[in-house]
């Protein structure tokens, strides 16, 4: 029953069976997107579930079957978190430690990387190897002696000590990234500046730093996140409630007897949000870094 002569032959002859071919391709396309969504779901759903749970009132959190979307969304848990717990103190402490870490790491790593790329002296290769090695030292191997020394010096329970520990953890990696970045900043421009009368450090401040800004921002964000995300050093170095960081403070919420799941999920949301924002800002750089240099680290 094929209409043979009724329709004129198309000007551009399509291959026989093109209709089913297109249909098959469409099915393949849908199937492919199904596969993508299906694999992303277990990756992303846990985080999404935290956001949804944070917005549900308590009784809705313990119903079976559970409600998927919050039926009566509420910000109560966020209010309770800020008003009834020490959460605001934790936020402040974490912010302070992370800013200290980021500020000092950026300053030290930028100067160090400049020195390593623009000056000639022996031992640079040794330092390169060592930064790699340092990155692989077990944190627990460093944490135990650091705890002993810092306690004996009477410097425990201080956010500065914590920040210094975080810096030691972030510095090798950041120095490595910055090293790679500064190598790509052409030397001709600073030489030109120096010929025009700028001092070495003047050229560094007015030429090299502006040109390295993307790298500087990236290591700033990275070291901030190292500190923000840390749990081990905070656990070992901090003792008093007033000094606790977010990770340490929130960990006291989730003991085996935890029941305040609304509060806990809300806390998780607040801890995660700045990470997502910051990470979004430097994602491109990081992915490149991971690809090009960071894997070689």
């Amino acid at each position: 029953m094929r209409p043979v002569a009724t329709t004129p032959a198309p000007a551009l002859a399509l291959p026989v069976g093109w209709r089913s071919c297109l249909a098959r391709r469409r099915i393949a396309r849908v199937g492919f997107y199904g596969l993508v969504v299906g694999s992303l779901l277990p990756i992303v759903f846990p985080i999404l579930w935290m956001f949804l749970s944070a917005l549900k009132p308590l009784d809705e959190l313990v119903t079976i079957p559970p409600s998927w979307l919050p039926r009566h969304p509420t910000l109560r848990h966020f209010r309770d978190l800020l008003a009834l717990t020490n959460f605001p103190i934790y936020i402040w402490n974490s912010t302070l430690a992370a800013c200290l870490t980021a500020g000092i790491t950026v300053a030290v790593a930028t100067l160090g990387a400049y020195s390593l790329t623009r000056f000639q002296y022996r031992g640079r290769q040794i330092l390169a190897t060592f930064t790699l090695l340092a990155y692989m030292f077990p944190p627990i191997l460093l944490a135990i002696p650091l705890f002993v020394v810092i306690t004996r010096l009477g410097m425990a329970d201080s956010l500065l000590s914590l920040a210094l520990a975080h810096i030691s953890f972030a510095l090798p990696f950041c120095l490595w990234l910055m090293w790679g970045y500064m190598k790509s900043v052409p030397m001709a421009l600073e030489e030109a500046a120096m010929i025009d009368g700028a001092s070495r450090m003047g050229a560094f401040a007015w030429v090299v730093i502006p040109m390295s800004l993307p790298g500087i921002i990236a290591i700033g964000v990275l070291s901030f996140l190292v500190s923000w995300n840390d749990y081990l050093y905070a656990l070992i170095l901090l003792t008093s409630e007033g000094k606790k960081t977010l990770s340490l403070g929130v960990s006291t919420f989730i003991g085996p007897m935890a029941v305040e799941w609304g509060l806990i999920n809300a806390a998780g949301v607040v801890v995660t949000l700045p990470v997502i924002v910051f990470f979004g800002a430097v994602q491109q750089f990081l992915v490149q870094g991971f690809g090009a240099g960071a894997v070689k680290e």
Binding site: S53, N229, Y231, S247, I254, W261, N265, G268, V275
Partner: peptide, 11 residues
């Protein structure tokens, strides 16, 4: 952050 990963999965 690790603490968040942990609380997500405990829940």
């Amino acid at each position: 952050p690790t603490i968040v990963a942990v609380l997500i999965w405990r829940w």
